[in-house]
Write a protein that binds this DNA or RNA. Sequence first.
RNA 1: GCGGCUUUGGUGAAGUGGUUAACACACUGGAUUGUGGCUCCAGCAUGCGUGGGUUCGACCCCCACAAGUCGCCCCA
Length: 417
Amino acid sequence: MLTNAPRGTNDILPDKVGEWNYVEGKIRDLCRRYGYEEIRTPMFEHTELFHRGIGEGTDVVDKEMYTFEDRGGRSITLRPENTASAVRAYLQNKLYGDSSLVKLFYIGSMFRYDRPQAGRMREFHQFGIEALGEENPAVDAEVILVAIDFLKSLGLKDLALSLNSVGCPKCRPAYRKALQDYFRPYLDELCDDCKSRFDRAPLRILDCKVDADKPFMAGAPKITDCLCDECKEHFEKVQSYLTEAGVSFTLDPRLVRGLDYYTKTAFEIKYAPLGAQSAVAGGGRYDGLIEEIGGKPTPAVGFATGLERVLLALEKQNLVPPADEHTDVFVVALGDAAQAPAFKLLEDCRHAGLTANMDYAGRSMKAQMKQANKHHARYALILGEDEVANGTVQVKDMEKSEQKSVALEDVIGVLMK
RNA sequence: GCGGCUUUGGUGAAGUGGUUAACACACUGGAUUGUGGCUCCAGCAUGCGUGGGUUCGACCCCCACAAGUCGCCCCA
């Protein structure tokens, strides 16, 4: 169908663009204060980047990517997220030469081939930040604070922050093994998905919703009990920085991120009333990613939020700012002789900084006045044959319903007062 | 990728297997000379998501596809 956009895409119409600009304005102000600089990376990358960066075996890579061959036979993928791209740009442009800690933010479209539903589009928009080059847990805390601050700056309430540590290459293998040892006797009782996760991604069994209530789940070993000393200390410091900053959070030993690159800190912010798609923001540390993509081992942390979901939450909480619909002047032209002078007057108003409009359909005066009213114009500037003849304009205050004759050359001056 | 529900004009929507597809809002025009917001009048879907099929005849029955929505899954 020619008049249908592809499934899961969405036009952002003029009446909604104001909300987007409002949110993006908040983001830019927030990032400036926290010292994050904007980066814009291409919408598509070599497919290989995501295979390496996100990880084979993840749902995003295996089932949800928009991958195609370009005319030169290269495999190209529309970005399903922006972290891999940001890291690629960081390496390609040697941003690590600028500073030992590079702080970036992005706003843009991402693409995932999922079944669309409320809060889940095939083309959707994320705002995210990446702090590259520092292992200090204070940076983990800063990243989380940016996420919290962002949502709070919009006035959102009833958000829940959950926190976990998923360990590092030193301690995670031991934990994987501990989990497999624990679940092996219960393998038959697990759901089909979890049976396949058993070898591939045993951590993911923990946040399976099907098996969540089975009696043996509660006794599963907790990763926080298996962390190596370094990860444990790091995790404790992140928590103490957050507590220091007055941020409340829930420790959730079952919180596991779906992307392979996460290490140590993992977090998620939920707004439950959104229903099935309630995760508004998520992120964590990914100390292994930069090396995986071909750089030197470099620690990094980041997060992303789904802007459609943020807007849904804003609408639910009635926090969408009213649109600015004001018009300063509406020019009403009567008769052929008035058309050109009216057009000139309209342009003069705009150059003076006023928002100004007129009717081009040659309607009756009554109809033009209706238009002026509909535009919520502060003034109607009426220009007919008499006015053209004697060089004046009727300036009508639409609210007070008062009208006076003003010399054409004085009109702008009168309006600007 | 799986399952449920949905799809009538710009919008919200009534509607029956068989003449002109209610009503409301919006929009456009008008209610005598160049003036808005109220009121009154008039106009406004040759078509009922798209494509097939059943039928003498379908918007109302069947099939496929598309889009929307909710849940699963996944995630932001």
